[in-house]
Simulated assay, not measured.
Amino acid sequence: MQKFNRFMVGCCFALTVSGCVTQNYENDKSTPVVQNESTQNEIAMTRISLGLGYLKMGNTSQAKLNLEKAKRFAPKLVQVYTAFAHYYDTVGEPEQAIQSYEKALSIKSDDADTLNNYGVFLCKQGRYQAAEEQMLKAIAVPSYILVAQSYENLALCQLQANDFNKAELYLGKSIAHSPSNASSLLNMVKLQYAKGDYKQADVFLKRYEKASRRFSPESLALAYKVFAKGRNLKTAKNYAAMLVKMFPNSYQSKQYLLNGLSTIEADKLAQKYQESLRTAAQKSRKKRMVKLSPNSSVVKNTVKKPEKPSQEIVKSQAEKDVAVDSAEKINQVNSEGQQVTLPVHVVVKGDSLYSISKKYNIHMKAIERWNGIKRSNVLKIGDVIYLANPKKIVKS
């Protein structure tokens, strides 16, 4: 996905004359130079600009020297501490960066630029909830005009946190605030592609092309994949031809000629989306209730002390321990109102119908018949497998 909006230090000040006058000594310390507060702020901003310029060139010592001078001229200027935060982030000192952001916000708690930049920084540190809180505070400032960019930052942060629903929500808000924001539109195309909604991806792709009025290797490769996945092969080939013709030396063009663009950035996002669905499904399965039949009701799931099957095949003590943990029984009420006991096996990683049948010495066909499944079915962790015929279980 596109990177977060870059750190920016605002350099616009209202140059109103202040009644507060201070003295400053230049090289000749015996000669005072009278300056007002606005002049001090101007000097500080110049030093900040120099410091960030040195930081960009990799000269960290000169960068810090100029930022220290800026702080000496204007110790209560918010931009001094946001610049220091950027410096500490760059040199790998996250705790000091946090202290600098907190200092800036102690001076002006509703400085929207600081709140947004602090949120972006926290997201980079993996503190997603705290990042979301700071960026939402920035958006809530009435005078803040970069709302669309902050919503996009929020969306990108939620993608890092694998919260695809929130990411889609915030991208939608970003586009609503700035309908021609090409960056947000392209990110929405990637997100819809990752979710497998190729029709919606096509809708946002058209909006992106209209807003940007230009092509890039990334957008052309993404368009090719959207239409190829959507089985519109003619349009997909047109985009591929444009890619090769307009950007013959690009990485995407070379990959298309080499392997038909088997994997692009959006495919990695799609893989993360599928993983998030599997994780959610596994959590849901843990809460699953076992029912005997559509007409029966579960009174209580009670796990009795496991009983070793009479003819169980155990090759080692480790396998025996697994058998003891897995062989459970549940008490239920059947359709006739009688309480019955049914032995079950809860599927764990590595299980198959064959391994279960060997473990309990039960014929695989019987397990298939009792559970209404086939040998080709894929077992999932948490699935409950009946180890007896549910229609002929005995009273407990």
Rank of each mutant, 00 (worst) to 15 (best):
L222I: 10
S178Q: 00
S310W: 10
R72H: 08
K137T: 01
V141N: 01
V189Y: 14
E265K: 11
R288T: 08
L156R: 12
W370H: 01
K166R: 03
L277C: 08
K103Q: 06
L277R: 12
K245P: 09
G51W: 15
E26R: 07
L342T: 13
K210G: 01
D383N: 14
L156I: 03
A63T: 12
F73K: 15
T16L: 14
I393A: 03
I367M: 07
L269E: 01
V120Q: 06
F164I: 04
Q96N: 09
N259E: 07
P309A: 14
S212M: 10
K287C: 04
A318F: 03
I48N: 04
K358Y: 08
P343H: 00
G350Y: 02
F13Y: 11
G260K: 02
A138H: 00
L258I: 10
Q35T: 08
T16V: 06
E42T: 13
S357G: 13
G172I: 04
K64T: 05
F7C: 11
K315M: 07
I381N: 03
A161E: 06
A182C: 11
R207F: 14
L55N: 03
E168N: 14
A221D: 06
S109W: 07
S18H: 09
Y81R: 05
Y87M: 08
R213H: 08
K234M: 12
N165T: 12
Q40L: 13
L387K: 11
M246R: 09
S296A: 13
I362L: 12
L136G: 02
Y25M: 08
A176G: 03
A236D: 02
K359S: 15
H363R: 01
T279H: 15
M57D: 15
S143H: 02
A155G: 06
Q158H: 02
E102Y: 15
I48S: 06
N116Y: 00
M364K: 06
N27I: 15
G196E: 15
K199D: 12
S335H: 01
L122T: 05
S183D: 10
I362F: 04
A97L: 09
G382D: 02
T90S: 11
L15A: 06
N334V: 05
K272F: 00
A241M: 02
A388T: 02
T90Y: 02
Q62R: 15
V120Y: 00
V21C: 01
V189T: 10
G119R: 00
F215V: 01
R285I: 01
V346L: 03
